[in-house]
Design a binder for these strands. Structure first.
Lengths: 236, 236
DNA sequence: CGTCCGCTTGACAACTGTCAACTGTTGTGG
DNA sequence: CCACAACAGTTGACAGTTGTCAAGCGGACG
């Protein structure tokens, strides 16, 4: 599939094989735009991503939608439902993919026997919490250009951990969706992309969704510089 | 202590008594400014808050600090450490309080025997994820005034769930700390408070840290109104 | 009593949102 | 095959919000 010979993220591979070995689950194929689950739907199962890309969105009454998060292979979907008993967001497939659904009750019982499974689950939830916190901090400290750069950096990092190519990434999101995630308007996202392109940090080919990343390190440096310039919102 | 005769949040009380009954733990008293754990410190234990208020902060190299979250009785501290093996933030006591520390390895073993404990833990982590997501959305959609209102609303809600008085709350945070949490400058926070006071949504007594909330419902309405006015950052 | 610190307020600058025009692509139907 | 509409994206001009800088107030504490 790619130049690195399917060297998937260790965690992702381990999670998938362990789950396959210990718990009964249901493989489900999804098509672009199809929902894995929807907000309000009662919580019964967790979903482990085997392939594809998924967006978590929150629908506001007006019909507008807010992008909350993007998930890749090895990620779990649906943790938000455990506490409340129903899901708070929609999980939508962005391309053809496969999720493995596991009944939560079953998983719970399996956890009492398999400590590795418990580790796996807690690790995934913990990572989810850390990830959300990183974004909380990013949103409260970074300006528009740096937010878009950080968005790309995270995407690249996610692909990197899964052994996929990172010099050319395909965002299956509109500018408006990216903006709704970053707290910006679509125009601000577009301008940010233009400025990043001017600084040679990204390149656009024929499609505006395909982003060339010549040097992912340079993106990190850009975000770091932006952080150190902003003495903003700091204490003493 | 208060008019409602110590009617604590059911969840919090249940969590505390269940933990006490099933797992060996260490009661630890903390004083204002004392750290429960610090960023970089290796992860060994989780901490369940028995009393007091705690802030989770992230220290940036420059010595500046970023407020990430505030915790109350019944909340767990330290989930972010599970995946990475060390804590990513500092947890600092804001007043005198008591936390119950439980070795994670021990807790894990106990979970294999006590399903209720597993439920409890997963519920807490799930709630943490939902909570962070709510704030992600708030930060990307709300203006300055609404963010401050939302901040107060959350604080009130947290006290309400624990059966404490909510008409008069004591923020143990400076304007700068609130600002760092909300992605605003201390001046913007101050101005937002002034505008909320003008609209009779809050009242300030002698101290600027004591906030009177005559009608917490009105705060909700204010945030809702603010949301519907902003067709911002929406998709189609 | 004086200093330090947290808070408020004002004036101005910078950034982002709003509105509008325009380009380019895609898909549909004549 | 072309005309057309629909849609994603870019760009410019301008307005609104928030950040920056500066001044001043008042309580806490030595």
């Amino acid at each position: 599939m790619n130049a690195t010979h399917e060297r998937d993220e260790p965690d992702a591979a381990a999670a998938l094989s362990l789950l396959q070995a210990t718990v009964p689950m249901h493989r489900r194929l999804v098509r672009p735009g199809e929902a894995v689950y929807r907000a309000g739907q009662s919580f019964t199962s967790l979903y482990l991503v085997n392939s594809g890309t998924y967006k978590i969105i929150h629908l506001v009454p007006d019909g507008r939608e807010q992008l909350v998060r993007v998930h890749f292979k090895g990620d779990w979907l649906g943790f938000d439902g455990i506490a409340q008993g129903c899901h708070g967001c929609d999980a939508i497939a962005m391309d053809i993919g496969e999720v493995w659904s596991v009944r939560y009750a079953t998983l719970q019982q399996a956890c009492t026997r398999q400590t590795e499974l418990l580790d796996l689950l807690h690790g995934a939830m913990s990572r989810e919490i850390s990830h959300d916190r990183e974004w909380l901090m990013a949103l409260s400290t970074l300006g528009a250009d740096a937010r878009v750069a950080e968005f790309l950096r995270h995407w690249v990092e996610a692909l990197q951990r899964r052994g996929l190519r990172t010099d050319q990434i395909l965002l299956r999101l509109t500018r408006a969706e990216i903006g709704s995630f970053l707290g910006l308007t679509l125009e601000s996202v577009s301008r940010a992309f233009s400025r990043l392109a001017q600084e040679q940090l990204v390149q656009f080919e024929t499609s505006h969704r395909e982003v060339g990343i010549p040097d992912s390190q340079a993106l990190c440096r850009f975000v770091q510089r932006s952080l150190s310039r902003e003495s903003t919102a700091a204490v003493s």
